[in-house]
């Protein structure tokens, strides 16, 4: 009898432990939906797009880009119909595009663009080959600067530190595997990731411009992985006064 009860006792203990654990788990199960909801919210929540993360470096006006930064030519609004309304389709005939439609008529005078500033920036000489060996490459669908590419950007920073009158424009590119509209934004993000890297190395933001070419300027034509790898890139264009 004693022997039997000895055998039973440990079993009962383990049963009661199991029951306790079950109870704990059941209690936890009650909270699981809340935990899951909280986790879901924290990853896909409505705050995502509004949450201000670590700030990025704005592009100051007047630098690196051909045009003069943030002109206020739209400050007083604009009227797409200012030049007259279109009434050429009453009979379903073709659009009357007129003679002046081929771009020559572009009127920038009331666009408020600072002509002098434009001229000054356009007078800076672009050198596309100087930094050619330092082109930075990216992973598929990524604008993150890979560790292997850091030394190239550091070399650019060294040059800019040693040549205080020089500037640089970073041209971001994509391979053709994205949609055209998205690649325009991705190319810009790539250029701006590299720009941020340079800023973190101590280069003044007003010496660094960016331009996105989307997928429109592949370095290598063709539909191979090797071509795509060469096309996902940010190129440095040296700007001399």
């Amino acid at each position: 009898m004693r022997q039997i009860s000895k055998k039973i006792l440990p079993t009962r203990q383990s049963e009661s432990i199991a029951n306790q654990m079950k109870a704990v788990l059941q209690r936890m199960a009650h909270w699981t939906p809340i935990l899951v909801l909280a986790l879901t919210l924290s990853t896909t929540g409505s705050v995502g797009c509004k949450k201000s993360a670590k700030p990025v470096t704005p592009i100051p006006p007047n630098i690196g880009n051909v045009q003069g930064g943030d002109p206020d030519y739209m400050g007083s609004g604009f009227d797409p119909n200012a030049s007259g309304t279109f009434d050429g389709l009453d009979d379903g005939s073709a659009l009357d595009l007129g003679d002046g439609v081929m771009g020559e008529d572009m009127d920038l005078s009331d666009g408020g663009i600072d002509a002098a500033n434009r001229a000054a920036l356009e007078s800076m000489t672009s050198d596309e080959s100087f930094f050619a060996p330092y082109t930075v490459y990216f992973g598929f669908d990524s604008a993150v600067v890979q560790a292997s590419e850091g030394s190239k950007i550091e070399a650019i920073a060294d040059h800019l530190q040693n040549s205080p009158t020089h500037g640089v424009r970073i041209a971001g590119h994509c391979d053709e595997r994205g949609t055209e509209g998205y690649n325009m934004a991705l190319g810009e993000k790539r250029a701006q990731s590299v720009r941020e890297y340079l800023v973190n190395l101590g280069i003044a933001p007003n010496r660094i411009g960016t331009i996105s070419w989307g997928e429109q300027r592949p370095a290598v034509e063709g539909r191979t992985e090797a071509a795509y790898n060469k096309n996902r890139r940010a190129e440095f264009i040296l700007l001399r006064p």
Partner: peptide, 9 residues
Amino acid sequence: NLASGKRNA
């Protein structure tokens, strides 16, 4: 503007 052919920024 397609009617006038003019464009602006």
